[in-house]
């Protein structure tokens, strides 16, 4: 599938300046992003994806999937990777994650 070819090569990273303050309320996580002044409300697995990128090193969808799979039961890899890719692109649009 096309998205997989893209996902295999596309890299994502987080910059230190894009660090967020987080606060969990019920099953929602609030993220305050000082650089934009925006507050985002996200749910799992978005906070977990962000955590996997916390070290600032670029990572592909597959790499992020494999790291998450160590701690969580993600189900079929294909579906999980598709979902992770969608979340990453949404995070890029918000400016919390950058294409590397």
């Amino acid at each position: 599938m096309g998205w997989q070819r893209v996902a295999a090569t596309k890299l994502y990273r987080r910059e230190g300046v894009d660090a967020v303050a987080a606060c969990a309320l019920d099953d929602i996580v609030l993220l305050y992003h000082p650089r934009s002044g925006q507050t985002h409300m996200v749910i799992s697995p978005v906070p977990e994806i962000l955590d996997e990128l916390a070290d600032g090193a670029p990572a592909s969808v597959a790499q992020i999937h494999d790291r998450l799979a160590r701690s969580f039961d993600l189900g079929p890899a294909d579906d999980a990777m598709r979902e992770i890719a969608v979340h990453l692109d949404a995070l890029v649009a918000l400016g919390l994650v950058r294409p590397a």
Binding site: D26, D27, L30, Y32, P34, M41
Partner: peptide, 23 residues
Amino acid sequence: QAEIFMRLTQASTNYVALGEPAF
């Protein structure tokens, strides 16, 4: 709690202006 947070941000005119301390 998440709904309360959302309703209170909507009920505040300076939440955005005050930035992280308001968060």
